[in-house]
Design a binder for these strands. Structure first.
Lengths: 219, 219
DNA sequence: CTCTTTTTTTAGACTTGTCTAAAAATATAT
DNA sequence: ATATATTTTTAGACAAGTCTAAAAAAAGAG
């Protein structure tokens, strides 16, 4: 059995390793877990002894198959719980992350799979992030953001790349939730902000900072 | 914030204090948590400093109002999660305890109350134990067991006093689940075992050990 | 009431995960 | 290439919760 702490390290390493081709650096892990590099080194040694990561001093780490399986199953838990909280318990999409951080560590294959069935096998969580299936397969969205769209192009909001409460709230004030239709009406050269038509109704303005974190499927 | 460990101590003290008029003894807590008396003493000092228990050396402990509120809210969580697991995720009543032991520590008033609403404010958990309401009120069953019934008396199964898997399984093989109607047909003097008619159909035999842990409402 | 047994507490040690400060290795710049 | 800056690791310390062994207090027996 692994502690919550170990599981959080594995999850962090998993997420960081999708962003870098090479080993994940000690500092990157420390930053993502709000801890110190020295603590990370200690934990990596432990995970390495448990054969959950491959590690050579000064070379960064990568998950082993075993480590990866654990990380993916925790992410699966996390995202299923988020769906549960939003769909069944009426939470808002900006309220569920912290609770899911706790719930994800409840370790029971049966619980996870029954929850999955109860929720009718959702493919995406409330932020559009894909939910790994029972076998651990993850179907990622293509990585097109609103900022990639050209004038007059249309799309549907399918996810976010930034999960902060403030960003999610900002989107909600613009009515930009999952499933929203968007058409780009204007791109301001100066600051790359955009005017977009939302659901064929209102026109809203969104900053570049906002548009580049909004994942879109072109239509 | 309190650690899982602290919460488990509070829960244990709460449960033990319903059984004894005086302070709860160090040894009793140690036994219930499968730990050593010396560890209990240490923890009690800590809880005492946090004003969650009243403690004088060698005199046992009692919960303060604050400690009791926490204990009750954890029990509320535990029992609501058990209902969820059985009603929504198709778990059996003998499978839910350990999972609920983990889930009960997820600390969110909103989560608890929304779950309660989602489950339509259940009054009892799958073992017939009463679920404390939002304000912490607990409506206990009267403490009549099958063993208290006389010949030809009738009752309905409303709970169990023993929660082990083996006992719950034993009951299930006898078709003695919550809501079952019972009529006492024979009481054997020698070993106090009983023959009872279940749901006006089959007659089954139950040992004294079995009958004294089955909580009944007379009809 | 005194002796014995049981319960509880203390003292000191160990584990897990953390930290700071300093040393070692690697990367960068000129 | 050599000096400088950055990253990573080591060494040693600390807090939480646990344990064993021994001491202190309370309870029970004759």
């Amino acid at each position: 059995m692994n502690s919550f702490t170990e599981e959080n390290y594995l999850k962090s390493i998993f997420k960081l390793s999708t962003k870098t081709a090479h080993g994940v650096s000690t500092n990157a892990i420390a930053e993502s877990l709000a801890t110190k590099a020295s603590s990370v080194t200690d934990m990596i040694k432990k995970l390495s002894e448990k054969k959950l990561v491959n590690y050579k001093k000064y070379q960064g780490v990568n998950l082993t198959k075993k480590g990866q399986d654990i990380a993916v199953s925790i992410i699966r838990n996390h995202r299923l719980w988020e769906v549960f909280l939003v769909e069944k318990l009426d939470f808002k999409w900006d309220e569920v992350h912290d609770l899911a951080e706790d719930l994800e560590h409840i370790n029971s294959k049966k619980l996870t799979d029954q929850l999955d069935a109860f929720l009718e096998y959702p493919k995406y969580d409330p932020h559009g992030d894909p939910i790994p299936d029972k076998e651990g397969n993850i179907h990622r969205h293509q990585d097109i953001t609103l900022a990639d769209l050209k004038l007059d192009e249309q799309g549907i909001v399918v996810g976010v790349k930034e999960h902060s409460k403030s960003y999610l709230n900002y989107l909600e004030t613009l009515n930009l939730v999952l499933g929203t239709e968007i058409e780009v009406k204007e791109i301001v050269d100066f600051d790359r902000s955009m005017s977009v038509v939302v659901n064929k109704k209102e026109t809203v303005n969104i900053s570049h900072q906002g548009s580049k974190n909004l994942i879109i499927k072109k239509i």
